[in-house]
Design a protein around this nucleic acid. Structure first.
Length: 845
RNA sequence: GCGGGCGUGAUGGAAUGGUAGACAUAUCAGACUUAAAAUCUGAAGGGCGUAUGCCCGUGUGGGUUCGAGUCCCACCGCCCGCACCA
């Protein structure tokens, strides 16, 4: 009997697939296409179990589609620009380019043994000049189409990475990568006009039926549409209006003061004139220092002394305050405060002794507001005591609509729609990114580079011994001729946010070597991505940017109209977790231990470790298992099988040594089963051929359903069960052989190497990878005889065995004659009998 | 605060409104072995009982239904996302 040697067969079949070129995507044949894509990795240098899970899921889909007669596009690339390469250069010397390409080579060599059905001929890295040159071309087209612009803006400055960050890249006041507290600076930056597409990006979410509802909702909240009233408060001194935006215009009679942002033009003017204001505004800009401080930040205000007139009563004057909680880039940067119905306004007014006026009460309670603002749901009816349009009992929603109509008719305000989504600032003061292809000329201003000069390559001779951008201090790279007038000029030294790189790579995969960003014929054939798979952490940033880029690329003629939503279906997979093993050092500080150093809760020297519940694998907690060592111990098939088997794919899966071993043992069992069946006399007859084949068809049905609906764990459970059935079967050689070949086919998306070897051993034709996927025979899915449970009043009391097509009346008769039913009836007639054919019988007594 | 999701054995988890706990882990017992490992066979939600069996059981409480883990309402707990957004 031969032994299952994963190392041997995996290398053998990977070579065979390569040689046959079966994973090379090809659009010539007359078959439907299928584009499956997993989010491409950052080349950190090591693959981790998360990658294994992500790519295995995509591979299962890709291989299944290949076996069901599709032209499959399943590419792989590298999201290769970004800070870590520069950090490495600063920390250990060397060049970001060498570091990155070295990592790519390492990771590729770790990934290849997984046996993924990837078309490696389409591989690229975003730091390839061939790729980023096309990105520059795309940028220039977008510039011409008015989708990119430059403006002076208050931006988030990361003092550690020494670069600006987009709003989406600031989490809790800290840089998403460095974790440093973000400062606010005013700089001239490049922006993508994503906010022009707010409404469309929001509307189109409804068409993304095969996206998780959670992701759509997160994007909806992020875009943040609101409807409200915009109007002016007239200044008493100058007669100039201060324009405010409010979503609760119905509370205007409860207005207590007008508030403006510290960045509002009026505040800026006062700042210049008045040192006291300057000091206050500076204090506001500093902001909090910790996350808690930001959450519980004290409301700060400064009374400017300016008075404005209430739009409904020229004799009613309100003070104008500068308040630290008002954001300049939302609405108009100015508000009116209604403390009775807004907790934040109430806190502010109580602090500074400003009036609090109730405008409505609950229908059954008219207690004036004291410390808690009265903010009922807008759908709840309330009783108005202070409204200008004569409202009495109405819901908030009705009151808002009535008020907007009233203001529009009276001509002092207009209903407007606002979005929270702001334009995407793409300038980064970094070296290792795609250079922005523009030139600054003293006479011509900002001039786009000529297309024939692309790519604008990054210079290789740079140093990282000083903080800041090496491009900025390079002696010659900046020098160039103005593309317009030819005069000596300076290049832009900012590079693009790396999210730009990942916003169109999926389109580039359709023609990775085209001389233009895309090849429209190829894009027309391969787009859209039929199934996209990645982490939920990209729910907003990457996916929203990509949706914007798909629109921009359509406008600039690089993608067909049908690709406006580039990802037909999205699946967000869970993480791979592991227990954490901890001891403490002499000072009581935690010390973590690698799983491979812990046996039965003890270290090699016998020290007991504390076991902390599973968390995402991370190097700092040392709860990591290296795919490379798993593959060398058990083989890729075992790793692939295990990451899919234990949990539903959208949930986290806990890596356990026992689970991985169990997966390995099971594959051995299947191997031995194949050996055993192979050794049978081909003419041997046995018992229960039909039963085995029936189970085989049920397995085909269930596994296919599982694979097609991301029920990988359920599919694998069915494969376990069918293997157990086959192992115990006494059927004849022909039936067993058919069963093991089918089992191999059903396993082939998950464990492709083992499946291939079994196929060959059992005399299967060609490669199993390209063999037609088995189809279940409907007639074989139902047993001739079915076991029906008999319920009495909904509780199971007995079972009967009847032919599958016996009619209801007959089933009822048999059910009623059972001992349990007779006993329960005790001579009386049943009140009701429900017979669900093939399912159940319920007798009500 | 706003929004969303989830609560099933010791554990991960199965169950188109139709026999709850498939499949797997851990556990226990048996076979093989001088012994162990490996492998194979079997047991196993809780309680009572020698047993045929009976009672209870999917976070808690109600409801709809012949029948609810699944649908509806309320509550409790946990997780995630967003958040001075006017």
């Amino acid at each position: 009997m031969s032994r299952y040697s994963a190392t041997e067969i995996e290398a053998k079949w990977q070579e065979a697939w390569d040689k046959a070129g079966i994973f090379t995507a090809n659009h010539k044949a007359d078959k439907p296409k299928y584009y499956v894509l997993e989010m491409f990795p950052y080349p950190s240098g090591r693959i981790h179990m998360g990658h294994v899970r992500n790519y295995t899921m995509g591979d299962v889909i890709a291989r299944h589609k290949l076996a069901t007669g599709h032209n499959v596009l399943h590419p792989m690339g590298w999201d290769a620009f970004g800070m870590p390469a520069e950090n490495a250069a600063m920390a250990i010397g060397g060049h970001p380019k060498d570091w990155t390409y070295g990592n790519i080579a390492d990771m590729r060599s770790q990934m290849k043994p997984l046996g993924l059905s990837i078309d490696w001929s389409r591989e690229f890295a975003t730091c390839d000049p061939e790729y980023y040159g096309q990105q520059q071309a795309l940028f220039l087209d977008m510039l011409q189409a008015g989708l990119v612009y430059r403006k002076n803006a208050v931006v988030n400055w990361d003092p550690v990475d020494m670069t600006v960050l987009a709003n989406e890249q600031v989490e809790g006041g800290r840089g998403w990568r460095s974790g440093a507290l973000v400062e606010r600076r005013e700089l001239t930056q490049w922006f993508f006009k994503i906010s022009d597409y707010s409404e469309e990006l929001l509307d189109a979410l409804n068409t993304l039926e095969n996206w998780p509802a959670k992701v759509r909702l997160m994007q909806e909240n992020w875009i943040g549409k609101s409807r409200g009233l915009q109007f002016g408060f007239e200044r008493v001194d100058s007669g100039e209006p201060i324009t405010v935006y409010t979503t609760r215009p119905d509370t205007l009679m409860g207005a207590s003061f007008v508030g403006i942002s510290p960045d509002h033009p009026i505040a800026k003017q006062l700042e210049a004139e008045n040192p006291e204001v300057a000091e206050f505004v500076a204090e506001c800009r500093k902001g909090g220092t910790t996350e808690e401080a930001i959450e519980t930040a004290e409301k700060l205000g400064y009374d400017t002394g300016i008075k404005v007139k209430h739009p409904l009563d020229p004799n009613w004057e309100l003070p104008v305050w500068i308040a630290n909680f008002i954001l300049m880039d939302y609405g108009t940067g100015a508000i009116f405060a209604c403390p009775a119905h807004d907790q934040r306004d109430l806190d502010f007014c109580r602090k500074y002794g400003l009036p609090v006026v109730d405008t409505f009460f609950a229908l059954d309670n008219d207690t004036p507001v004291d410390k808690t603002a009265f903010v009922p749901p807008k759908t709840e009816k309330v009783r108005w005591v202070n409204h200008f349009a004569g409202l009495t009992d109405a819901t908030g929603d009705d009151a808002i609509n009535t008020t907007v109509d009233f203001a529009e008719k009276a001509g002092w305000g207009e209903g407007v729609t606002k979005y929270r989504l702001r334009d995407w600032g793409l300038s980064r003061q970094r070296y290792w990114g795609c250079p922005i292809p523009v030139v600054h000329c003293e006479s011509c201003g900002v001039v786009p580079e000529k297309n024939e000069n692309l790519p604008i390559r990054l210079p290789d001779d740079v140093t990282f011994d000083k903080p800041g951008n090496p491009l900025d201090r390079h002696p010659t790279w900046r020098d160039c001729a103005c593309p317009s007038c030819g005069a000596p000029s300076k290049r832009e030294t900012d590079t693009m946010d790396t999210f730009v790189d990942s916003s169109w790579y999926f389109a580039r995969f359709t023609a990775p070597h085209a001389e233009t960003p895309t090849d429209l014929a190829e894009a027309e054939y391969w787009m859209n991505v039929d199934q996209y798979i990645g982490g939920i952490e990209h729910a907003i940033l990457h996916l929203l940017y990509s949706r914007f880029f798909a629109r921009a690329m359509q406008i600039t003629g690089h993608l067909p109209k049908k690709a406006i939503e580039p990802f037909d279906a999205l699946f967000t997979q869970g993480m791979v977790t592991h227990e954490i093993y901890q001891t403490r050092d002499a000072n009581g500080r935690p010390v973590y231990h690698l799983p491979e150093d812990v046996t039965d809760g003890k270290l090699a020297d016998g020290t007991e470790v504390e076991i902390i519940p599973s968390a995402k694998m991370s190097k700092s907690k040392k709860n990591v298992v290296d795919p490379v060592s798993i593959i060398s111990a058990f083989g890729a098939d075992t790793a692939r099988w295990f990451v899919l088997s234990d949990s539903p794919p959208e949930r986290d899966v806990e890596w356990t040594a026992s689970g991985a071993e169990a997966a390995f043992k099971h594959l051995n069992r299947v191997w031995n089963l194949c050996d055993k069946i192979g050794a049978m006399d081909p003419e041997a007859k046995g018992d229960g051929d039909q039963d085995l084949l029936r189970e085989m068809h049920k397995a085909i049905h269930d596994v296919t359903l599982g694979v097609e609906s991301f029920g990988f764990n359920a599919a694998i459970a069915k494969l376990y069960a069918f293997t157990n059935t086959l192992a115990k079967s006494k059927a004849g050689a022909a039936a067993q052989k058919q069963a093991i070949k089918t089992l191999a086919q059903l396993m082939s998306p998950m464990t492709p190497h083992l499946a291939e070897d079994i196929w060959a051993h059992q005399g299967g034709e060609g490669l199993i990878a390209t063999a037609a996927w088995p189809v279940a025979d409907e007639a074989m899915l139902v047993d001739d005889t079915v076991t029906l449970p008999i319920q009495i009043n909904g509780k199971r009391r007995a079972e009967i065995s009847v032919p599958k097509d016996m009619d209801k009346a007959e089933v009822e008769k048999i059910a009623l004659s059972t001992e349990a039913v007779q006993k329960a009836l005790d001579g009386a007639a049943p009140k009701k009998v429900i017979v669900v054919p093939g399912r159940i019988v319920n007798v009500v007594v």
